[in-house]
């Protein structure tokens, strides 16, 4: 049973105040959440305020013209407004949600958070919306029906992504009031390092530097660069890189002559950690696409050369969680 941190707040006015405004639906052992009556907040929308102003005008008008049917209509509309308040509240109460696990994605690429909305009631619930930060998805739920919605989001960083507090929102039926409820999920989503954050030049460089498939020249595998040292042969110097003003770099080649490619942490020592991870992740994706066998060597973890989806996931996961606790 996972408790929301808010409900653990105890004692004191501040605590109770904060509790009153942060009630959050609890996650049950089977992974669903049920919104209970006390967790639903409700406020009027702009239309609700316009409606209230209209009612006031009708009241004044009825009074000044001495029109009793005007009073009756005004109060009937006020009653409908009150009923709309209750119905909007009821639209969320008892709603069940299940946050679904998702496929890992790369940081800064668009993704979706899938959530199943379950309606246990014999009347429909319409316009149910789930929000994650500034994005949302919505659906109409039929009587005793369920619907899976996909909330778009764009993870910023690699590693484990916790969506944190989500909001379930509705304005049905009248749009005069909006009701919402908070809920948390214990689901975590794996975010691979980003792929495509290189400036044009760097992208070029990276693709030069990272080995692509079988070596093009000679029978040795191009492996990477190291800084020029006295005594390096001219044909080992990367003149293209020199022309781009990166100084003299010597091309390094694998000494091994086997089929396997190794992605070496140490070979990208010029770059920051995040950039190195991004470059290696990109290499993994491209090797995988080309159907090659490749291995990964990063501090603290060595993955032997292999191929296939599982291997790719293993490598990317290792990159994603590098130095993460």
């Amino acid at each position: 049973m996972s408790q929301s941190p808010d409900s653990a707040v105890t004692g004191g006015f501040k605590g109770r105040f904060s509790e009153a405004f942060n009630r959050t639906a609890r996650l049950e052992s089977d992974g669903t959440l049920t919104i209970t009556p006390r967790q639903v907040y409700i406020l009027p929308t702009r239309y609700g305020l316009v409606f209230a102003v209209m009612l006031f005008a009708m009241l004044i008008g009825s009074h000044n013209y001495g029109v009793n049917m005007g009073f009756m209509l005004t109060f009937l509309l006020a009653g409908l407004g009150m009923s709309a308040l209750l119905q909007t509240w009821r639209n969320l109460v008892g709603l069940q949600l299940r946050v679904l696990p998702g496929e890992p994605v790369h940081a800064e690429s668009p993704s979706v958070l899938s959530i199943t909305l379950i309606n246990n009631r014999r009347t429909p619930r319409s316009a149910i919306q789930v929000r994650l930060q500034t994005d949302a998805a919505w659906a109409d739920l039929s009587a005793s029906g369920s619907e899976t919605i996909h909330v778009p989001y764009q993870p910023a960083d690699r590693g484990w992504f916790s969506p944190g507090r989500l909001t379930c929102y509705t304005f049905f039926p009248f749009g005069l009031f909006y009701a919402w409820a908070y809920f948390n999920t214990d689901k975590k989503y794996l975010i691979y390092p980003r792929l495509d954050d290189f400036p044009a030049e760097t992208t070029q460089r990276a693709s030069d530097e990272l080995p692509r498939g079988r070596p093009q020249t000679g029978d040795e595998d191009f492996y990477g660069h190291r800084n020029y040292q006295e005594g390096d042969q001219p044909n080992r110097i990367d003149w293209k890189a020199f022309a781009r003003g990166r100084g003299l770099l010597a091309k390094q080649y694998h000494q091994e002559h086997d089929e396997d490619l190794w992605l070496e942490w140490g070979s990208l020592s010029d770059y920051g950690i995040e950039q190195r991870l991004s470059m290696m992740a990109r290499a993994v994706v491209e090797f995988d696409r080309a159907g090659l066998r490749y291995g990964l060597r990063i501090p603290g973890e060595t993955i032997k050369p292999d191929f296939g989806n599982r291997h790719r996931h293993r490598c990317l996961k290792a990159l994603a969680l590098f130095l993460e606790t």
Partner: peptide, 21 residues
């Protein structure tokens, strides 16, 4: 189902309206 809901809302609104009236 919208007609049914509208009816339900009416039933809830009428006592409210009569008391206020």
């Amino acid at each position: 189902s919208d007609i049914r809901l509208a009816g339900k809302m009416f039933v809830q609104a009428i006592p409210f309206a009569i008391i206020l009236f």
